[in-house]
Design a protein around this nucleic acid. Structure first.
Lengths: 125, 125
DNA sequence: CCGAATCCCATGAGATACTG
DNA sequence: CAGTATCTCATGGGATTCGG
């Protein structure tokens, strides 16, 4: 019965807020971008880690688990010894690339201005 | 477009990451939206608070301070007693509305699917 | 009326070490 | 190889109180 499409950012269950919570976590957007660049190929765990300098196993693992749970990423286990695990974006995950690209574009175009504002603001203290 | 494998997302100073850090905090996008809806009018602190159910003074104050520091919001003090403080989006702040609208659109269109994925995933445990 | 200061808790996230 | 388990720390965020 939830009248969801009301642009109601004020609902605690507001979809926008929940999405921002997700893509706002440190490694999510980066993971989606790496998987999007590799698409339609799958990427192995170790490959992902190599392509994301600075991430720890723990955070990569947690980020992927969360993305899989959200249906944005698919996980495929090759039952070899040792096992190899492959990840790829689902259709849903790929559909997020557009919005993320828009955010990237804004950031690249305007963050310098934000930096200047910060500098000005701090100097005025 | 441009270099992909070592894109800026991996730089610790990456603009996208910094932007997501900002709009990912709980009240930022909501504040921007409320101010955008009111534009070009200014909004007083108490009004803002009334339009954002659930927010505490502390967080509204902190969110606004951060937005002002980033140059997205302008603050104007009326030197009355008691003082009244007015906020409005800057041009920079208004330029963020587009990207936020894209994010909102994706969320409203797809978060139900995310919810289903979660339910399916949890049921499979 | 606006907002700063303080206290407190929950969570994000890194480092390290351990298993199938 | 691909994780999980702890430990630890920094930060976000809420409730409350105080001040100009």
């Amino acid at each position: 019965m939830t009248s969801q499409v009301r642009g109601d950012l004020f609902d605690p269950a507001c979809p926008t807020r929940r999405l921002l919570d997700r893509i706002g976590t440190k490694w999510t957007s980066m993971t989606v971008k790496v998987l999007a660049e590799a698409a339609p190929d799958e990427v192995r765990f170790a490959d992902l880690r190599r392509r994301m300098p600075g991430i720890s196993q723990k955070m990569l693992s947690a980020t992927l688990r969360s993305l899989v749970r959200d249906g944005l990423v698919a996980r495929r286990v090759e039952p070899t010894v040792p096992p190899s695990v492959h990840y790829r974006l689902t259709d849903l995950g790929r559909s997020l690339e557009g919005p993320l690209a828009v955010v990237r574009a804004w950031a690249e175009e305007h963050m310098a201005e934000v930096d200047r504002a910060n500098a000005t603001h701090d100097a005025a203290e």
